[in-house]
Design a protein around this nucleic acid. Structure first.
Length: 344
DNA sequence: TGCGTCC
DNA sequence: TCTTCTGCCGCAAGACGCA
DNA sequence: TGCGGCCGAAGAG
């Protein structure tokens, strides 16, 4: 669900924090993705089909563009969010199964697919969004790609939306430092603002929308002070309001030692065996996509040989590792890329 | 480019 | 009176390949 | 399921 109306607020009040990019602008970048969001996207688009094929196609598109994806899996959700998830699952009519953090069969399939594609993945101790944001802060990855805005209060400096395989689709990049500068608030104040807007971890104050919430935080700086300065009759504070727990979740996300990230060559034969013989995807579909992948890769190498500097040589790309706390480039360099508005 | 199909 | 919030409604969500 | 647009209701100045 993310943060209610945060995208609107940024669009209207901190437009400078947004830049419009093309997927090719992320060549050579390490991008963390919340796997559950990606999988749910495919499930929502084609409920009758396995989301595995979608994951397969999209991951290859990333690799073709020289993007190094890292998939992050949800661990045991924090108690506050578990309640929300359970409620959501109940209304949707399915059983909420990630209470323990034990991988479902679908998760195991995704893990297997990523292994065969040679793409690294990380098991988060809790919320995958929190882990993704922490990876950016630690310099392990350059940005988070997600449709949820949660990564920003979690502290991800760069958030990318609409990073998909569609041709001519516009990628939107949000810069947290620019956002804070434009709104003239600190990260802690921004977290309080997100709680007032409405997040997954606690209730919100009724009657306070994005306009008023922003003005109040800019004026009074903390939720405690905002509460003292709003009309309690028209804007009642929720009973047993767990805003302090929510604040703690955003600011003190659980951290783990990041494993060394390694990208290797996709194993076509094993992919065919898994996707076609176990998951019953048509072999022709998998083979032709792999063929296209190889051709794109060859073209890139040719371009590189011809002196096209932007392209990443694939031999360089594979078997490349990213060590902990050793960013390839500062995350901020992503947002310093030239804006490339799409012409329609 | 639009539309049908993927499983 | 103007601004802001809320609730309701409708639509579209992925990616590929063929015509 | 989530969003954007539209509308009526309610609050702020």
């Amino acid at each position: 669900m993310g943060i209610t109306k945060l995208a609107d607020l940024i669009r209207l009040d901190a437009h400078d924090a947004i830049s419009h990019k093309d997927i090719s602008d992320y060549t050579g970048k390490v991008i963390a993705l919340d796997t559950s969001i990606v999988v749910n996207q495919f499930r929502a688009a084609t409920p009758a089909l396995s989301p595995l094929t979608g994951l397969f196609f999209r991951t290859l598109t990333f690799l073709e563009h020289g993007i190094k994806p890292v998939f992050v899996f949800d661990g045991k959700p924090p108690g506050e969010k578990a309640a929300v998830l359970e409620k959501r699952a109940e209304t949707a009519g399915w059983r909420f199964s990630n209470r323990t953090g034990i991988a479902s069969s679908q998760t195991k399939d995704c893990l297997q697919l990523l292994r065969l594609l040679g793409v690294p993945f990380i098991q988060a101790p809790g919320d995958a969004e929190a882990m993704c944001a922490w990876l950016v802060r630690a310099g392990t990855v350059d940005a988070v790609a997600s449709e949820d805005m949660d990564s920003l209060p979690f502290g991800a400096n760069i958030l990318i939306r609409q990073l998909n395989a569609k041709k001519d689709s516009e990628v939107i990049e949000y810069s947290l430092p620019k956002l804070l500068q434009k709104l003239q608030i600190s990260h802690e104040e921004f977290v309080d603002l997100c709680i007032l807007l409405g997040c997954d971890y606690c209730d919100k104050i009724a009657g306070l929308g994005p306009r008023r919430a922003l003005t109040l935080i800019q004026k009074h700086r903390t939720i405690e002070n905002v509460v003292l300065n709003v009309n309690r009759k028209t804007h009642p504070v929720p009973l047993f309001w767990k805003y302090k727990e929510a604040r703690k979740l955003f600011l003190d996300a659980p951290q783990i030692e990041t494993p060394e990230l390694v990208w290797t060559e996709p194993d076509e034969e094993a992919l065919v065996k898994f996707l076609c013989h176990v998951k019953y995807v048509k072999e022709e579909r998998v083979r032709s996509r792999m063929e296209k992948f190889r051709k794109t890769r060859e073209e890139r190498e040719k371009e590189k040989a011809a002196g096209c500097t932007k392209q990443t040589k694939m031999e360089d790309f594979f078997r490349v590792t990213r060590k902990r706390g050793q960013p390839v480039e500062a995350a901020d360099s992503l947002s310093s890329n030239t804006k490339r508005p799409k012409s329609k």
